[in-house]
């Protein structure tokens, strides 16, 4: 069984409003450094009062450009998120999968042309 690191999101962003893509980037780096050594991550949002898509795009959406979906599902758990924010997270992750699929198809087409 993999190690588990529990991350309180409010401690990473030094606040209770997750509204900045810069702060999201900090969380992304924290998650990513654990994923690189095959460590599971639990994100605790229970102290967070407000989350917007820009934060989730940079913190979690960005993971889909580096890791496969099954890997993310196996290594990441979300705790303490309001139900409407879970719905937002689903929109963000669906969008991220589509974005990186389109991006790789676009890059493949360019490589073929070149």
């Amino acid at each position: 069984m993999n190690n588990l690191v529990k991350i309180k999101v409010n401690e990473i962003i030094n606040g209770q409003t997750a509204v900045s893509s810069i702060e999201g980037e900090k969380l992304y780096k924290k998650i990513s450094e654990n994923f690189q050594v095959d460590t599971n991550v639990e994100l605790d949002f229970s102290e967070i009062k407000l989350i917007i898509s820009a934060f989730l795009n940079s913190s979690i959406g960005q993971l889909y450009g580096v890791y496969e979906t099954p890997f993310i599902k196996e290594h990441l758990t979300i705790k303490g998120m309001e139900s409407d924010d879970l719905y937002l997270l689903k929109k963000v992750t669906d969008r991220a999968k589509e974005y990186f699929l389109n991006k790789s198809q676009f890059e493949n087409s360019v490589n073929e042309i070149l």
Partner: peptide
Amino acid sequence: EGNTTRTGSTPGGLGLSL
């Protein structure tokens, strides 16, 4: 929804549609 001018490693295209 889904349209964004971003090209980097962070996806986007949701804010205005939400």
